[in-house]
Amino acid sequence: MSEFVEAVDIEVTVNGKTYQRSVEPRLLLVEFLREELGLTGTHIGCDTSYCGACTIHMNGAPVKSCTLFAVQADGQTLTTVEGLATDAGLHPLQKAFSEHHGLQCGYCTPGMLMSAKALLERNPNPSDKEIKKQIAGNVCRCTGYQNIIKSVHAAAAEMRES
């Protein structure tokens, strides 16, 4: 195909801020976030939609941003790990992960937080099994998941109280 591939104009709202960019159609959403917007908290850990390090929310649902093109996110509302903390401080999940040592190298953490957040938004008091199923598509190579599960429980408890 020798023709010129047109860049596509897109508008995306990320963490409450709207961006307009012109992108190559093949640009993955995760690359868009990292390279175009400088939001490097969302990571790439595999290429086959296994590890979940790139998990973000699109219109409130957790998605793997390495398995979406940026053009598909045109007009959508995204939340990344950078959007979790507010002026009031860290999200309860962020606090709980630190408090309960739910992270070591930190590479999977943003994706893990976003998957966990999706769970707590619809199930304020999940069981161990529900947490495990929720993060089944997020690989962590450091923690053995034990403290991640503990952290999600702790955050759930804090969110229930507040």
Partner: peptide
């Protein structure tokens, strides 16, 4: 099917 994120899409 697969995991949560894949099921979302």
């Amino acid at each position: 099917i697969a995991d949560l994120q894949v099921r979302s899409r």
